[in-house]
Design a protein around this nucleic acid. Structure first.
Length: 215
DNA sequence: CAAATTCCCTGCTAGC
DNA sequence: TGCTAGCAGGGAATTT
């Protein structure tokens, strides 16, 4: 989230549980309120973050482009930005497990641990498959499902797993559409096989051992 | 150089 | 009942 201030830009990354609330007048006492922006008209914008994982950076506007370049942030998960050829070429050069590679934000922006598991289930690709071993068809499926899953997640207002809400305090509903995340021990909706979970790159990883073969 | 691992923070849950 | 250990997650820092 970018705030264009007078002479500076404030970059605020909410991570999983950062939230902003705006109060016209009285600001309620809240345990996890950390940052208060007071406006001249009496309103207050409050940043809350239960686990203090969010980050904020203040920099000069002319450094903004360089900032994003240094992060090596990939394209937006949209058809017009996320180029399949570029994606396939990058995968062909990498020995990383596909899940770890999708999570690092360089191929495409926006995939976190929940949605990467959902994308790989939909594309029927095992999370530990090495990037360079994927077929053109598999890469294409991952590309298409990334756009589909993130598009749907935005439409549903995100996934409320713990405390996530939007700025109006409303829960998202994307969790109702999860096929593998947090469904360990339950039947795969496609084939009935029991969903399993293991650690990959330090992340809990959910998958269907029948639909997503190691190959 | 690329890939793997560690760490940050707090709240919740499982196990004793 | 109350305690602790383990887990969750994005990404920077550190190690392999």
């Amino acid at each position: 989230m970018l705030f264009y201030l007078t002479g500076k830009v404030l970059i605020s990354h909410l991570r999983m549980e950062g939230k902003y609330f705006y109060y016209l007048d009285q600001v309620p006492e809240r345990k996890h309120a950390h940052i208060f922006f007071q406006f001249e008209d009496g309103g207050t914008l409050v940043y809350e973050d239960v686990r203090k994982f969010g980050t904020m950076e203040l920099l000069a506007p002319d450094l903004l482009d360089a900032y994003f370049i240094s992060k090596k942030l990939g394209p937006e998960p949209k058809d017009q930005d996320f180029d399949l050829q570029v994606f396939q070429a990058a995968l062909a050069k990498s020995k990383k497990p596909i899940k770890s590679h999708l999570l690092d934000q360089t191929l495409v922006a926006g995939l976190g641990n929940i949605y990467v598991d959902e994308v790989l289930w939909r594309a029927q690709v095992h999370p530990a498959r090495l990037s360079q071993t994927l077929t053109a068809e598999e890469a294409s499926a991952i590309h298409d499902q990334t756009i589909a899953v993130l598009g749907q997640a935005v439409e549903k207002g995100g996934s409320t797993i713990r405390t996530y809400t939007n700025a109006f305090g409303e829960d998202g509903t994307m969790q109702d559409f999860h096929q593998v995340y947090d469904r360990t021990g339950q039947a795969c909706s496609r084939c009935g096989t029991v969903i399993e979970k293991f650690q990959l790159g330090g992340r809990g990883t959910h998958f269907c051992p029948q639909c997503q073969r190691r190959g």
